[in-house]
Design a protein around this nucleic acid. Sequence first.
DNA 1: AATTACCAAAATATATGATATTTTTAAATA
DNA 2: TATTTAAAAATATCATATATTTTGGTAATT
Lengths: 217, 217
Amino acid sequence: MIDSYKTVGENTYEMIKKDIIFGNLKPLKKLKLNELKNNYKTSISTLREILSRLSGDGFVVYEEQKGFYVSPVSKSDLKEIANLRILIESHALKYSLENSNPDWEGSLLAAHHKLNLYENKLLKNKTEERSNWKRYDSEFHQTLVRNCNSKNLIELHKLIFDKYLRYQLLVLTFRGSGSIEEHKKLLDYSLERNFKKAQMVLEEHIQNGIIHANKSF
Amino acid sequence: MIDSYKTVGENTYEMIKKDIIFGNLKPLKKLKLNELKNNYKTSISTLREILSRLSGDGFVVYEEQKGFYVSPVSKSDLKEIANLRILIESHALKYSLENSNPDWEGSLLAAHHKLNLYENKLLKNKTEERSNWKRYDSEFHQTLVRNCNSKNLIELHKLIFDKYLRYQLLVLTFRGSGSIEEHKKLLDYSLERNFKKAQMVLEEHIQNGIIHANKSF
DNA sequence: AATTACCAAAATATATGATATTTTTAAATA
DNA sequence: TATTTAAAAATATCATATATTTTGGTAATT
């Protein structure tokens, strides 16, 4: 219902973006208009619109007269993204904590609860669906920054986070109990409004993520 | 020659973006496809592509089934943008200084020289062209961050800076000798690789800009 | 064998016209 | 005044057509 209400363009945009994030469209793959037209059942003009948007988001690269292709990935790019994520997410977290209020604290608790249940499930059963884990992880981190009271900052965070997400789904794996503990600390320090400690855990959390990644690249 | 080589879409993209930044297309103005088609002499499909890109850049807002309109401006938005600019530009500056080298120092000196000449001219003659000033100012600040060695960071900075630029051209005016001094200090501390002092000046520089702006909003 | 030149096929860039929907506007009604 | 309704305007999408550019392969040249 919610989904089918959207326009063709919007739906296809989501689909292609998802396919890039989940790796169904591999890095550097040439995105030929005719091919896409057949695969996604939309017109060329709509597709060009979509690809233009995606190139703004950084998931697609566009070259004049040559067309579009899926953005490349690299270890150094991941490092850059991770550093930016630390910068942006920390900054937003700081303001979220300053503006802390019961409503927000409640939503953070809720988001953590769901994430925690899922991570524990993953710990026991490795075959669990990975995309769900990422959904809860995203939700938790996005809740962390949501209270910062700056629309621009939230948007920027989403931009970076999505790029990071792509790497998570391409090369990062669930780190197990380490990640669980970090999330718990992140929650606790946030509820205590202890920015310094929360920030340290966050930075560690993201750094640990990419250390883990180095193996699989 | 260089310009006319580009595609119609690219040229029109630049034109519309410029018209928004310079205020020829006023905030909240509805961007009707047919109207734009007549004014910019391009097809609807090309225009939709362009507007899609611009909405990714944040200069245009898109609403499903309702179309496109020029992004609004507000004092609080300017404040958010300024804060983000401080965050991003400081961070990038830090790394630029760490990676400092003669080449970069040279280009920074050059950029400052041109900016300085122009600002002094402005000080004497208020009627001078304002868009030129902004060009040199942009160039100087972009040179500051260029050496940070992170493509993502540079792109992010450009994104924010352009949004800031729009406000500069819409509501900010030349502050006179204050700005000149700040730029000079920014240059000197950067050449000394004194991040702490350079950062402080930068923050002050941007803050002073928006204090000045409050009057005209 | 490597490089260059050239041609055909593929792909992009752009424009236009057609159709279905949706939104907006303005008029009509209660 | 508020609500409803009908007409007009605008968006969303697609298909098609054309010019230009890029690509890939073959032949010619060094």
